Computed example of a mutant assay.
Amino acid sequence: MESIYLPTSYRSSKNLETAGYFEKYSKMCPLTWGGSSSDNFCRILEEMALNDFSEVDLSALGASCSINKLQLPSEPDNFPIEVPARLSTKSKLDFYYPVTTEATQLNVIKCKEALEKKWIRSEFKFGSKRSLKLTITDNMSNHFRNDILPGTNFIYSILIYRPFSMSMGQKHSGEKLRFAMEIEALGTNLLSQIIDAIECVSNYGVLKEVENTKVNLKQFQNAKQEYPSQTVFIDGVFYNDTRSPDAEDYSEPVIKWAREKNIGKFTVSAMETTLLNTLTPRIGYPYVYIHQGNCEHILTFSDARLIQPNDCLVSEKYPRIVSVCRSTNVLCLICGIAPSQWLVKKCDRFPQEKVFLCTDCCNSYLYIDGKKVGDFELYPFFDEKVT
């Protein structure tokens, strides 16, 4: 597919053999990884030719390099940290502050914390933020034990986008591609574990047409168990989920079509037996995840880095969702108050092709004595924020 969707159009990297790359890198930089902090400190001193220094000299050197030297004599002690009411410039730095206790006394850190608190409150309320970092307490729980040594594994950052639809042959018919979540995974994780971590509203319920709102919605729930078929297309390989005997092979008709069109030779593999460190993806290149028949997600490998001491060192916590898109409930089109529970399509009483309604508004506007008013299609709607 790279002959059709050129990698240069996405500014993606070359195919990376990440396992061998990071193994070679960790051997080149053994000083950074492993051992106790005191052993590392001694190696650093030896590397810098400072092992002949006395403790007095090292203390004097540490005092000379202290962050307290960053404060000017003329700097006021009572530097204001109040946030101006009309301040609109936003920092692109991360919410987290990987600083020492001494650094938290700096006025710049205090100001940034105050600014971020103000922006977080406003963005939660008005929804102006693209994604929200999840608060994750790494290495702090007594229920888990650190079993990963820094430098012995690597982390993939994988971006998942919301499903989209488009009509071929119609200009501007495709929906805008929207970020959904970011997943961090180890190189030793299975591809099926990544797929299981993806949250999609299509897995909550089956979208089937019904006659009225009095149907039992429980029969439409658990779509993921009812239809377990899914596949991921990465670098010419369809990684199918074959864990369930009821799963269908989504790749078969696509491979047949590609063979007839002379597009390329695609292969098939099982996602539940494929480790991430055996893949050679392009960083930044779009790949496809398909489930629930025609629910398609774009996913990209956005970053790959060697695991560090300040990362989560508990393998049981991977893969994990580290950020999600800020989204709101889909409210009823008529009342604008209640969450939507029904999807109405092709209704001659609405100017839109599809609308979302709550149960009360749907019954009062589209039904009289339990009979339909006009022609329309009615489907149960499962909102991911309500389900």
Rank of each mutant, 00 (worst) to 15 (best):
A180Y: 04
R121C: 10
H172L: 14
E252P: 00
D249R: 03
P150H: 06
Q219K: 14
A114E: 15
I158W: 06
N139E: 10
I155G: 00
N212S: 15
A185K: 09
D196S: 13
L207N: 08
T213N: 12
G174Q: 13
N189W: 00
V210M: 11
R178D: 13
N153H: 09
F154H: 00
A197R: 15
K117M: 12
F164M: 08
G127P: 06
E248A: 05
S167L: 13
I198M: 12
Q193L: 09
A258F: 07
K112W: 07
M166N: 11
I155E: 01
L159K: 05
E123M: 13
Q230V: 04
E209G: 08
N142Y: 05
L191D: 01
V237H: 00
M181Q: 15
A247D: 02
L217K: 10
S229A: 13
S141P: 03
S165K: 14
K118S: 08
S131H: 11
S251I: 03
T188F: 00
S157R: 14
V206I: 11
S165Q: 13
E116W: 09
C200V: 09
Q221G: 10
G151P: 03
R243D: 12
I160S: 01
Y227V: 07
T213Q: 11
Q219F: 10
M168G: 11
G169K: 09
P150V: 04
I158A: 06
R243M: 13
F238Y: 11
Q221N: 11
S173V: 09
D241P: 01
K224L: 11
